[in-house]
Design a protein around this nucleic acid. Structure first.
Lengths: 119, 119
DNA sequence: CCAATGCGTAACCGCTGCGTTACCTTTTGT
DNA sequence: ACAAAAGGTAACGCAGCGGTTACGCATTGG
């Protein structure tokens, strides 16, 4: 089962969303979904085949977690289909970074009222 | 049929890619795929239901074209699942824009070697 | 040591999707 | 006017998927 097929199921999409919170056991995932535990097991098998989740075995428990690299085929298709030339290119960002560094350096020499300091 | 189901088929994905080149007739799409014309017709029906294509009727011909807005549900899921805090936020861009404008203004007053002038 | 817990898998069933062929309607062009 | 072209749809068979229940196995903890 590939990523496209894996995403074509509401339960599996929901499982993936739940895994954003961190690794989960099968029983945990089953508890929060309206299907049986074996059903979740099979969904996880499919998600694993698709490369969307990974497993960590710990004794009798299996901890499943998200594997976002598996989303790449889907992301690639979206990039193919929406030729959105990004409003700001890497080129621009590069030039901007240079400017910012220089400006910051200069400002440190002759201070001015700062707009943001947090984070 | 929703967008997720619509993308879960190699023929439909291929049709969408072909439509990047512009509106196409059913026969055109069928010619470039290893399935019958009625099969393409049904695929187009599904893609239409999913909001991924739109139709323009012209006499006995129907011109199908891409409708990228239909990809939004998929794009949204990707955004949900990859918490990639964008390296540069709108906030940053805003601040950068201010800096750049000011810097440009200043530089115009006291010129320095420019790195890039094109585009 | 033994019951409980966690989990995978097989078997069965119903639904849905895909491909094909056959058929029909509408439009076009000579 | 008529044949050809464009395209939608129905009917049929097949394969795959998802849900459930039943079962088996390993691990854990009192």
């Amino acid at each position: 089962m590939d990523a496209f097929a894996a995403l074509d199921d509401p339960v599996r999409r929901s499982v993936l969303r739940q895994l954003r919170a961190g690794p989960q056991r099968v029983v945990d995932l089953a508890r929060d979904h309206p299907v049986s535990r074996p059903a979740i097991s099979r969904h996880l098998r499919h998600l694993h085949q698709a490369g969307l989740v990974q497993v960590a075995e710990q004794g009798r428990e299996r901890h499943y977690s998200l594997r976002t690299e598996g989303l790449e085929p889907v992301a690639a298709l979206l990039r193919e289909l929406r030729p959105e030339a990004p409003l700001v290119t890497d080129h621009h960002l590069d030039a901007l970074e240079t400017e910012v560094r220089r400006t910051t350096r200069e400002r440190r020499a002759s201070p001015a009222p700062a707009r943001e300091e947090s984070a």
